[in-house]
């Protein structure tokens, strides 16, 4: 069949204007004042502190959501229990609604003006304007990715291999470690990379709960926002945005590799 080249031109032009132009401009602006200027912007104490906080938050949120995601995937794939649809749905809520709304919801539940706030305060836990709140918000908005990347792999692989292991005398832990995990590892890793990308880049939910206290509750995305919105320091914005963009690109490349691994793995016995 003849290929419509006209359509190709339209598509490339659209993607060029909507996607390539902004990304190209970001790279151009980040380095327009030279590499040393770029380095000086990203090594500002505020920027470094923000980056470190972002990484710390990710170090908590990513493992949590990975364990919960894999656990939930195993439960959903292998057992039909009362209410599993409701649980399944709950996983998607945080990414289906605005992160700003998630932020407001967390404040209304856990801050001093919220339901549990006074009680939490007596326990010495403060959620609004604190790192705890940032961790909570970040964990919420990156909730479903591991589950969503693992569940289809589990469903597709079926239970045959696990049952075979059981007939050979393997207990649940051994079966999970030696049989299930190798089957789902690329799927899990895919979800982990997505979770990481989302946690490092989260803005809307975090900016609501963090109170934006510079040097204390500023993650890198908030630092970037603040550099422009409060301080009109375009260069600081751009240079640090490039750091986040670079992380995103690396994540994309890793995801691409994982997808092809996953495809090969699946194609094995097709």
């Amino acid at each position: 069949m003849k290929r419509p080249t006209g359509l190709r031109v339209v598509v490339l032009a659209y993607l060029g204007v909507i996607v390539a132009l902004p990304v190209g401009y970001l790279i151009y602006r980040a380095f327009s004042k030279g590499f040393s200027s770029f380095m000086s912007q990203v090594t500002q104490p505020g920027a470094v502190h923000a980056l470190v906080l972002s990484l710390e938050v990710a170090a908590i949120a990513v493992p949590l959501n990975t364990i919960v995601g894999v656990g939930a995937a195993l439960l959903f794939a292998r057992h039909r229990f009362w209410g599993h649809r409701v649980l399944d749905l709950c996983f998607d809520i945080p990414v289906a609604v605005s992160p700003v709304i998630i932020g407001v919801a967390l404040v209304l539940a856990y801050s001093k003006i919220g339901w549990w706030g006074s009680w939490l305060a007596t326990q010495g836990i403060s959620v609004l304007f604190s790192v705890t709140g940032i961790v909570l918000a970040t964990t919420a908005v990156s909730l479903p990715y591991v589950l969503r990347s693992t569940l289809p792999v589990l469903l597709e692989s079926g239970t045959d291999q696990e049952e075979a292991a059981r007939t050979l005398g393997s207990g649940p832990l051994r079966t999970f470690w030696y049989i299930t995990l190798p089957v789902i590892r690329w799927g899990v890793l895919y979800g982990v990379v997505l979770t990481l990308a989302r946690t490092l880049g989260e803005f809307g939910a975090v900016v609501v709960v963090s109170g934006n206290i510079s040097g204390l509750t500023q993650t890198l995305p908030i630092y970037i926002y603040d550099s422009w919105d409060q301080n009109y320091n375009a260069q600081a914005s751009f240079d640090n945005a490039l750091i986040l963009a670079a992380i995103a690109v690396v994540a994309l490349v890793v995801l691409g590799i994982l997808r092809s691994k996953e495809r090969n793995h699946r194609g094995d016995l097709a």
């Binding site: 045959d160 291999q161 049952e163 075979a164 292991a165 030696y178 049989i179 089957v183 094995d268 016995l269």
Partner: peptide
């Protein structure tokens, strides 16, 4: 037990 689709550990 031999499974219908053999269930090899891939």
């Amino acid at each position: 037990f031999c499974f219908q689709h053999y269930a090899p550990f891939r």
